[in-house]
Design a protein around this nucleic acid. Structure first.
Lengths: 337, 337
DNA sequence: AAAACCTGTCGAAGCGCTTCGACAGCCTAT
DNA sequence: ATAGGCTGTCGAAGCGCTTCGACAGGTTTT
């Protein structure tokens, strides 16, 4: 391995000069800079990460905690992870992948050891056990998700309550009176994942205002689970004409089942999905949907973190406004003409 | 931050003794060990990662390069990534997430800087430009995927050729004579991704032996793309009764289209999918499928890497044997009774 | 013309850890 | 009893980098 000292010798300057060329923290004459850069190239020099971290006490690494579970929408997670990795590189950071499995210990380990300069946490529960640690770790962090108490924290998330409200509004405007919500898997609610509960709240309170009836049913993904869930819903509320689907893996099964029962979309029933645009446009019916802005969230999280590391920014909570795109799966309620 | 020296002082021993307690590289008396461990706990000590890496020239980090593109099966990628992260932690390693975007530069950067001790590379092309670098980097690496020339490399992959063959065999045994293959997106073939081409080869050569006719069509995911593809296939080979689907996001659309055309599965046509079991069991018809053993591959990659870092293992190429599970989507060809 | 200030470079200290050789004390073999 | 071996501990060197203070030489200010 080539070291700084070797580069310095090769270029006929001192080690500190090479360091300053690399970091740009002191002015260097153009000729010296060029000579050093030339040597770096010729020798194929790469600064040693460990030495850097030790000397500067910054590792240029951002830790990303992703959920281990696969009961939630995987492509969204992946999209966030990739956006985080890409954006981080743009700012000179690498990304360390942590699974939620280790829980609070991972936070302690990573911040305690100086392995990472900062941390992005996904799959946040309303009263997450990692929060107290994050508050006092001294290292910047961003949550993708919104816990109950956000004091001393930075959060980004889609405004799920507004998302739920938006879905209801759309259906209400089309004249639907009875709406069913196909939710995430029961486990997601049991562990009080923020987004699932907030969506429901937003949905219900707007429904109350608009005078709609809402029936919420959690649903595991897949055809069979959806079949059971749908049967129960139609049994309890035969007049249901509007569906809001939050669990992506229930979308296609639902469409198949409705078709099979001779209920036409959007003539007889309307379906609004909460999912990435890619899913909405690739489904067997082009879905009216509210998009989950996974990329935006990942990018924002990194940019906030980098700004905070540079002292350019403070804690805050950002909720992205949802946007509903009307496609072919929603239309006027049958009785409404 | 608490340092080794502070722990040593607190425990009344020298710094090196604390280090040896931590690493276990020299024998330490039980009483001393306990005293040191006590101090570590009381002070909440975490070894500094940078200092460790510098002194030992090992970072305890494994780099994982995942594809940036989303034209390939995302859940499989995610499953591998999670298996890698989980297994790595079991062995005391952390995982650095790299996107394929940076290409060979990422390999140079990460190995040159000593950021990672070893590397796992996914989405390998037959003649991947990262291979020469990996061969001479001096750091262990494992490819998940199989390039054309494996000399000096370690690879794990599903035996895709055998997978293709297995699908054909199954359909042949059921009496099907005309088989269509719904492949991955065209881009996947254009960049000569190993698995896609090998599957096709295996499929075709077994088909030749068994006297089947095979029609291969790449297919972007989604309903519309599938509709176009299916129409073309049935136009060209109206007698097609067997389908092999490699692109997971074409599975459900295909089933929907067949249903819509009044072709019953498995009475009129049989469908064999190459996909994770979860997808196969959650589809609207329980799919006969060959599973992609994502977890096994991730786990194996890490274990091989760790063994190689410990000098316990050499380069080799491991192909996992495919297993076909018969479910409800395949049956005797119609003409065969 | 002296004082004050830049600019560009260097030397040295030190970041927190691992690891090597040394050695004190004790045990075993002769 | 003495040489040789273990065991458990210590001190010091050094990993490759960043960063601080110093300073030489040139430029500007008064």
């Amino acid at each position: 391995m080539v070291t700084l000292a070797e580069v310095a010798q090769h270029a006929g300057v001192s080690a500190s000069t090479v360091s300053y060329v690399l970091s740009g923290k002191r002015s260097i004459s153009a000729t010296t800079r060029q000579r050093v850069e030339q040597s770096i190239r010729e020798l194929g020099y790469h600064p040693n990460a460990g030495a850097r971290a030790l000397a500067s006490s910054r590792s240029a690494i951002i830790a990303l905690m992703i959920p281990l579970r696969t009961d939630m929408y995987v492509p969204v997670m992946m999209e966030i992870a990739i956006a985080v990795a890409t954006t981080a590189r743009l700012h000179g950071y690498d990304v360390l992948l942590l699974t939620g499995e280790e829980g609070p210990d991972a936070v302690r380990r990573v911040t305690g050891s100086g392995l990472a300069d900062a941390m992005i946490v996904m799959d946040v529960e309303l009263d997450d056990e990692r929060l107290p640690l994050l508050r006092r770790t001294g290292r910047p962090s961003v949550l993708i998700g919104l816990p109950s108490d956000t004091t001393g924290l930075t959060c980004v998330d889609l405004d799920w309550a507004a998302t739920g409200a938006l879905c209801v509004e759309h259906l209400a405007a089309l004249g639907h009176r009875d709406v069913a919500v196909i939710g995430e898997a029961p486990a997601v609610y049991e562990r009080h994942t923020g987004f699932a509960e907030r969506t429901l709240d937003g949905l219900r309170s707007r429904a109350r205002e608009a005078g709609l009836r809402v029936l919420h049913r959690p649903c595991e993904g897949g055809y069979d689970a959806m079949a059971v869930t749908l049967a129960r819903i139609l049994d309890e509320r035969p007049g249901t004409t509007g569906f809001v689907v939050q669990n992506e893996s229930a979308v296609e099964p639902l469409l198949a089942l409705l078709r099979q029962q001779g209920r036409a979309v959007p003539e007889d029933v309307s379906v609004v999905a909460i999912c990435p645009d890619q899913v909405a446009t690739q489904a067997s019916v082009r879905l009216t949907s509210v998009a989950v802005p996974a990329q935006d969230m990942g990018r924002y999280a990194v940019e906030h973190l980098v700004a905070k590391l540079d002292g350019r920014r403070e804690d805050d909570v950002v909720l992205l406004a949802p946007e509903l795109t009307v496609r072919a799966s929603s239309g006027p309620a049958p009785s409404a003409g």
